[in-house]
Design a binder for these strands. Structure first.
Lengths: 339, 339
DNA sequence: GTGAAAGCGCTAACAA
DNA sequence: TTGTTAGCGCTTTCAC
């Protein structure tokens, strides 16, 4: 049978309470007894039962993480940052994805209701925002990783879409490009919208508004990049640059540009987003906006951990300030200066 | 305060035991009382506390998953399959990565000792195999996702490295390629070794052994693909094909081949592995071995869930048979027949 | 400084 | 069919 605190207590000749005190460092304990208890703990290889501890203490030491999916590279990166940070703070990490749709969310909500974890981290809440806000209102500490802060009461870590998109725009403007195509993400997605808007705003401010017909929705696939370019060509849209919402689609763009005889960077400059994978390996190598994805995840996890460790109200308010994320433009050949 | 089973019992005019029975479907309950209890449960929005249930039942309903990292695309795919399947079987999923090295594993082991979950899924155990075997021996249900089954007692799901590598070899042989370069993974990694071996074995069997100097270690980065090719050229190694351990490195290979004036597919045929991302978007598009990664993850999770639901001994033995994985070769231009 | 006792919220015998 | 009684293994007052 499992070694329990009772065994330790018996063997050490003390009460369970004392063993608990020693292990949790609460209350004063005689140096000698403490040493004895610790010795017995080691001898018996005693480890407190997570189940019993969580029932008695009223918290689990576990944090829930809700992500749309793991298969998008940038999300995997963020998750890794979260995992590392959680490990650091000693929290367990329960993973939930919204992969299977509404049903997934319902099951997730069940775990919330069952108090299966102490705090929640949500990556790209999107449609689940209201439900999540409700959970937060019900007392569950929540931290969001998102660019749309619908609820000003929730701590939120931005994902760098706006500054990144602006950087991309400024870079293209500096190169003298004036008529960009924009290949976006799925309609209705926050991150897609914020990226596209920041980009077109920057161009508009510079005096070069981007016409709607030059903006194509996408789905983050390579194919959507290909389709956007060929559509633009077919429609006779005049363009000298392409801003693409992720690196995968950007590959499709590069491929199709070459196919239609307008290869980057000479005819068309191309900027991608994320730089999380193969951007340096495309032909030509892709200029891309790099986001500190792991840091974003780690930062969010840190904030949540702080909240769980009972941050004071003032502190919580401070944490609620959106955390600034610094993006970096990695310039490669796909935007080499026109000759 | 939280609604507990006591509140429900009181309001429904029954004992806690009866409420428990209704909720767990154990023992006979009068239809009328059952209806009444259910109504009250709904009225009060009662959800059993996961903490209390797990302490009382002696199990958590949670499964631990230990992965090397989330940032390698193929692992993210497998994890998504695992997550979907776990969700399906109603299990929670505690995620652990070995990202931070020994320390990570120690913390993970702590959770195991604390009985924080009922079963364990390990992706690419590698160096942790002995420790994991010990956990299994101590009674923790374990399922591995790996190509090296060091412990015949543990159920294991293969990841398709051997059949995939053989397919790649046969494809190149059929194209008349005889002198392949092999760009592998980090030395000492199981998956890398099994892939390389299966490939070289196939060539050797066909009468064309691959000399050691034509085999380069890599680290799954694009750079290692570039380096391998340029090294081979510098060393004056004669080759007409390259088998690369993942798609990212393959991109590097394609890039460097073009750079040194021996572009694929004419001079050199290139086959990648995984087809999990941008393989269709390289220049030229990459022929690659596709593995059913999500299925692999889902299958492993299914087996573990079955074990947790108390599979009979005979059944367990059956499950211990390595599950066969079918890989598929996706042929693209990087191995177009030489003209 | 330490022990006894009362929970934490639920399940599972055992009676009735 | 249902209630009573013990726990599950730990933490935490409250006395001593």
């Amino acid at each position: 049978m499992r070694v329990t605190i009772a065994h330790v207590a018996l063997r050490a000749g003390v009460s369970k309470a004392t063993v608990s005190r020693v292990l949790n460092g609460k209350g004063e304990t005689d140096v000698a007894t403490e040493a004895r208890v610790r010795r017995v703990v080691k001898e018996l290889g005693y480890v407190p039962s997570a189940r019993a501890v969580s029932l008695a203490k009223g918290r689990t030491g576990v944090v829930g993480v809700l992500a749309p999916t793991l298969t998008r590279p940038w999300i995997a990166q963020v998750m890794q940052g979260v995992a590392d940070s959680m490990e650091h703070s000693g929290h367990g990490l329960m993973l939930f994805t919204r992969g299977l749709g509404d049903d997934s969310f319902r099951r997730f909500a069940g775990h919330v209701d069952a108090n299966a974890f102490d705090g929640l981290l949500v990556i790209e809440p999107e449609a689940t925002t209201p439900a999540v806000a409700k959970m937060a209102a019900a007392g569950l500490p929540v931290v969001l990783i998102s660019d749309r802060d619908t609820d000003p009461n929730l701590p939120i870590v931005a994902t760098g879409n706006q500054p990144g998109a602006r950087q991309a725009a400024q870079h293209l403007l500096a190169l003298g490009r004036r008529r960009p195509l924009v290949v976006g993400g799925p309609e209705g997605y926050d991150c897609a919208a914020s990226r596209a808007t920041a980009f077109t705003d920057a161009f508009a401010e510079a005096g070069f508004p981007v016409p709607p017909q030059a903006q194509f929705p996408g789905d983050y696939s390579g194919e959507s990049g290909r389709v956007a370019v060929s559509s633009a060509v077919t429609l006779g849209i005049d363009f000298d640059a392409v801003f693409v919402h992720n690196d995968l689609s950007a590959s499709g763009v590069l491929q199709m540009l070459a196919h239609v005889g307008r290869p980057a960077p000479h005819d068309v400059a191309v900027v991608g987003f994320d730089d999380a994978g193969h951007a340096a390996l495309t032909a030509p190598p892709l200029t891309a906006v790099r986001r500190p994805l792991r840091d974003i995840g780690a930062e969010a996890a840190r904030i949540l951990a702080a909240a769980l460790n009972g941050a004071a109200a003032s502190e919580a308010a401070e944490l609620a300030t959106p955390v600034a994320i610094t993006t970096e433009l990695v310039v490669r050949e796909s935007t080499a200066a026109p000759t």
